[in-house]
Design a protein around this nucleic acid. Structure first.
Lengths: 210, 210
DNA sequence: TGCAAACTAGACTGTACAGTTCAGTTTACC
DNA sequence: GGTAAACTGAACTGTACAGTCTAGTTTGCA
């Protein structure tokens, strides 16, 4: 077991090709189902090269997850126009975030981390910190700011953020995670996000005359 | 691939021992990490017997999931006293349900179904129907009844049920699923469930004077 | 008591796969 | 043009494991 990460930025073109091919395979098929031969074949690279860059299968897997985590950090959401109502401000970010969660790549990543969390606990932690936790932290700050402006009645902004994100991660996300039913289209995603935000705002928006 | 279920009730004592041992192993370690030798050893049974009862590894796996699904169906929640407030009625069921979700066995089951959902789509579906979907259906009915009694303002009870369950499946459940952090104790679970129900009621409870 | 079915231990087959090795080729760079 | 490093292809080793087979033992039942 040697699942510590490589440098986030892969040096050579070959290394990048390997990372990309391996990410594709691991994320769609899972760790156990992917052979190193398959990775080498897909990357258009010899096995020797593969092993020269990443010394072992678990190291390659770790590098992929770390890499994906770095990408996730780039995905900071944005908020709607400042003067708008709470709902109007939150809806676009809710749609964006739910769309991100429902991308095949995000779902695959989540699945593989859940599946291999026991074998690679530090990867599960890294995933959580760079994904869910980072989003939560960002949203907590934003909600606290809205509370300070009097738009929101949230004595515990971190809890409110949790619940906001939980509302978005509802039945639709559960089904997608399990690979059940058709992938929801844009309209369905928007509708689900809107329903979540409507409920969130009903619970948390400060009444007009308070 | 032959992942159709055995009869739900295993006939002989040996078959039951195999199912139990295999469930323990598959659910804690995942499908790929468990060898048939290990199952036979743990069940105190020869490999020949194992193969006599369940013809192949995937069939054994299917039988286990089907079996666990049948158990889940037994776990129908109960509601608090009828005359109580919405919150008081819902809190006990919320705590019970969240406790159930956070049991090692439930988490392991969820993990393994998520991990193997691509390989065994019909099992993912069975899991969903007997677990999340059954709960959702039951809760939808209950919420519709409360809405009819005027306690609740939920024009779409199924959506309300989704959101109620999503609120319970929040950060605490996510972390537990990823195997991160200490397992929450009873008090933490109760607090999380209460927070979820408070938010749910704030969004959905019909105002007193309406 | 005797038979049939269930069971056992463990050896065996075949295959898939992680990881290594090596002789030879390409590429980059001075 | 020379050389060092990166790379290739393919063969190779060792191991883990699914599934089979056999020869013999236990158990349930008439």
């Amino acid at each position: 077991m040697s699942a510590t990460a490589e440098a986030a930025a892969p040096a050579s073109a070959k290394a990048r090709a390997i990372l990309e091919a391996a990410a594709e395979l691991f994320i769609t098929q899972g760790y156990g189902a992917v052979s190193m031969d398959a990775v080498a074949r897909r990357a258009g690279v010899s096995k020797a090269t593969l092993y020269a860059h990443f010394g072992a299968k678990d190291r390659l897997f770790a590098a992929i997850i770390q890499n994906a985590c770095a990408e996730m950090r780039g995905e900071t959401p944005e908020m709607g126009p400042a003067g708008a109502s709470l709902f109007d401000a939150m809806l676009p970010m809710a749609i964006r975030w739910l769309s991100f969660l429902l991308r095949e790549r995000s779902l695959g990543m989540f699945r593989v981390v859940v599946a291999e969390g026991a074998r690679f606990p530090e990867l599960a932690r890294a995933f959580h910190e760079n994904g869910p936790r980072a989003t939560r932290q960002w949203l907590t700050g934003w909600l606290a700011a809205q509370a300070a402006r009097g738009l929101l009645d949230a004595p515990d902004p971190a809890l409110a953020a949790d619940q906001c994100l939980a509302l978005l991660r509802s039945e639709m996300f559960l089904q997608a995670t399990l690979g059940i039913g058709a992938m929801p289209d844009e309209a369905a995603i928007a509708a689900s996000a809107a329903a979540a935000m409507r409920t969130f705002c009903r619970a948390y928006e400060r009444p007009r005359g308070a």
